[in-house]
Design a protein around this nucleic acid. Sequence first.
DNA 1: CCGGAACCGGACTAGAGCAATCCGCTTCGA
DNA 2: TCGAAGCGGATTGCTCTAGTCCGGTTCCGG
Lengths: 196, 196
Amino acid sequence: MTPVVPPADDADPPRARGRADAERNRTRVAEAAALVFAEHGLDATVAQVADRARVGNATVYRNYPSKTELLSEVALRWLVDWRTALRAAADAGDVPFREVFLELYARLRGDRLALDLLRAGAIDDEVTAARAEVEALFTASLDAAVADGLVRPGITYADLSVLILGTAGRLSEIGETDPAAWRHVADMIWAGIATG
Amino acid sequence: MTPVVPPADDADPPRARGRADAERNRTRVAEAAALVFAEHGLDATVAQVADRARVGNATVYRNYPSKTELLSEVALRWLVDWRTALRAAADAGDVPFREVFLELYARLRGDRLALDLLRAGAIDDEVTAARAEVEALFTASLDAAVADGLVRPGITYADLSVLILGTAGRLSEIGETDPAAWRHVADMIWAGIATG
DNA sequence: CCGGAACCGGACTAGAGCAATCCGCTTCGA
DNA sequence: TCGAAGCGGATTGCTCTAGTCCGGTTCCGG
């Protein structure tokens, strides 16, 4: 059973194998993908990613078997990050829902992929599962706020989904990137759902 | 100069000329177009309209020179109708802005073309002009409400555009057609923009 | 510094989706 | 009855995109 494969001492760089230039390209592609998907969401094309990375499209496919795979990697990064933040807030216990709410707006601003993910994003099972977790955590936070009398009774996750994803989508659509403008909209929404 | 063309007594049916079956088809196409565009907005295809009218696609093109022309006719119908309503409200003078606001929500529900028109709809100059008029009338109504202290100061047409078009777009996207659900969202938005 | 393996870019393939046209056949109506 | 008006759907021509192929280039161990 003694393996014939290389020593496999992938200690520090978990994926650093093969030629150095190839590794450099892999990084470039990943970084470009993050930017391009943030800008164009699910509509981004592989060619756009390749161009941004200053690389041929074949190089993208050499590192990722399909566009879906690439999308999934970027999507999961966002979802896991947001999930971590939500869990931390839940664990702390004393984070007001308003902050969670505003934080979501801030994370959606300028990130069309994030928006697309929460809107429909059926990329693969892993992403779907992560999204479900994130939604559950957010819902729990909202329900607690309703129970505490911070948010008007009768307001559900479905309602907030329409309000937040709808307005964030529209802001993206018109190319609004000013944080103050986003904040202004968030404040109006908040005024509509908060108690007195 | 005595014209050789037919009597041209197009009194009652302004467009009734040619064979009866052709006229019938023209009507079917127009009706189908209204339904299909309402359902799919600008994304609707000519083939969908033809199928809905139970007609070959060539019949559509026999009556309308291009898809744009067809779209324009349907779009103008909606815009002129809404403009008329807005003018009537303005002339009456005592229509509370809240009613105008709710009426817009009602008119956007189940009509994706209307939504697309207000969101971006650059179909042709006529449509663009009609939309501009409609926006001006709505803005005037909003500004009056702000002046009257019914709507919080600092709320602009741009704000309402994001709130209304965003949420209506999202409701359409998820296929929500229940009037009560739309009304619920409208009420939340209203609570966010109205004074005390 | 050499040679072959690994890697590269971009031309290419395959296929979907669409507006608009063409044309042989059918139906209307004088 | 018969010719013109009208018909449908096959077809064309275009755009756009995911994914593959291949001749040339670059890296790096010996």
